[in-house]
Design a protein around this nucleic acid. Structure first.
Lengths: 212, 212
DNA sequence: GGAGAAATGTAACGAAGTGTAACGGTCATT
DNA sequence: AATGACCGTTACACTTCGTTACATTTCTCC
């Protein structure tokens, strides 16, 4: 799933099931970055991380089951460049990979702030701020929805597209989760007037372009 | 160094060493964007930022020494449009400046209100307001119909044309949907007198030009 | 004129789309 | 274990809109 996600963003991806496979893959290509699961059969993820970090210049994004600070510190201590707890959000994974690559200077894809209709969205910090009313607290999925809509303000995005972008899955027959998510997001970002997120019958949802 | 960088990209750049110089420069030219260092002699960068943001429409890219969350939040809090931690990558600075200017261009785009016979139609917000009676609530299809008619006031538009514009489909043999839609729209926008939407036998519908 | 045909107006019905409250499962935290 | 955040599912209310049926208007032809 991680591989599919990254491939869809345009990166070239190779997969490996354990340390041995990974070494073989590393010999074939010189990747810029490794996404490393801490739980692996055979050689442990932490050990691999230490080895990679010491011997190579490759960026390491570590995936682990637990996300408390202790783990984090240990992770960074042994040479990981960033760290993501499971279950993670697909969009967040992509954002972090992009950030790491950018930091390496091999990728020029600045993910700056997005401001639409009085909302400032910071993909790096995953925070949203209303021009007038101050910061708005959104849940992970809510943030991803807003972010996705804000990347294409004024364009109608289908439920299928949104579902895929936000959760990396396809809709089942009577899937209403996007509708509910939209409803929840609206409740948090709308000001009195007409909703900032408009529904387009038989099509999907759009973020308003002009502030009314 | 920043100035040289931006000039090399083709932008016109003016420099200022402190707040006073900046005010003088702003009076001379009306820049689209200010790159603002948070550490300045005299008036503090944050203060300047707050002032600019409140008084003008100029985009602000803030440069800060530290890039932790505190700084980031403060930066957004006081009205910066984007921020960049030092030391920064020259290419990234250019990319962000470009992104901000592009975003500005989009936002400045006129929304294209249409006003006919006392109705103001806002295609961006998809709202209609009657000069006398205030906002009117229309459904999606109703709005599209009114909008289409209002783009060509006084011209007769055929049912086929309207159907295609509004629903992107062609009529089947006994299609009356446009008639019904017109009926529904009339009920919402007409004032006492003759209908604002006139039917032309064997041809279609027209929006009245003059208010009777 | 007047009868009939054709065009248009609109109420009413029903299918489908959408909004959202409420419930419950999962997971991390305490 | 208890708590709370998050989010998918479900259920129900409401909206939207095409279809149909019938009423009304307008035109044509005699």
């Amino acid at each position: 799933m991680v591989a599919a996600l990254l491939q869809r963003e345009g990166w070239t991806v190779a997969q490996a099931g354990d340390a041995v496979e990974m070494d073989r893959a590393l010999a074939d290509a010189q990747p810029d970055l490794v996404v490393l699961d801490i739980n692996l059969p055979g050689e442990d993820g932490l050990s691999i991380c230490r080895r990679l970090s010491a011997q190579t210049d490759i960026s390491i994004l570590m995936l682990t089951a637990r996300s408390d600070d202790l783990d984090r510190i240990i992770g960074l201590e042994i040479g990981a460049d960033d760290y993501l707890g499971k279950p993670f959000n697909p969009r967040e994974l992509v954002a972090r990979v992009r950030a790491l690559l950018r930091r390496r200077g091999r990728q020029a894809a600045p993910t700056g702030l997005i401001t639409v209709i009085g909302l400032t969205i910071d993909p790096g910090a995953r925070t949203v701020r209303d021009e007038d009313r101050g910061p708005i607290k959104l849940s992970g999925a809510e943030f991803d929805l807003l972010w996705t809509l804000a990347e294409a303000p004024g364009r109608v995005l289908s439920r299928d597209f949104l579902l895929d972008r936000i959760h990396g899955r396809t809709a089942h027959p009577f899937d209403r989760s996007i509708d509910v998510l939209v409803s929840r997001l609206r409740k948090k970002i709308d000001r009195g007037g007409p909703s900032l997120i408009e529904s387009v019958r038989n099509a999907g949802y759009v973020l308003r372009v002009s502030r009314t």
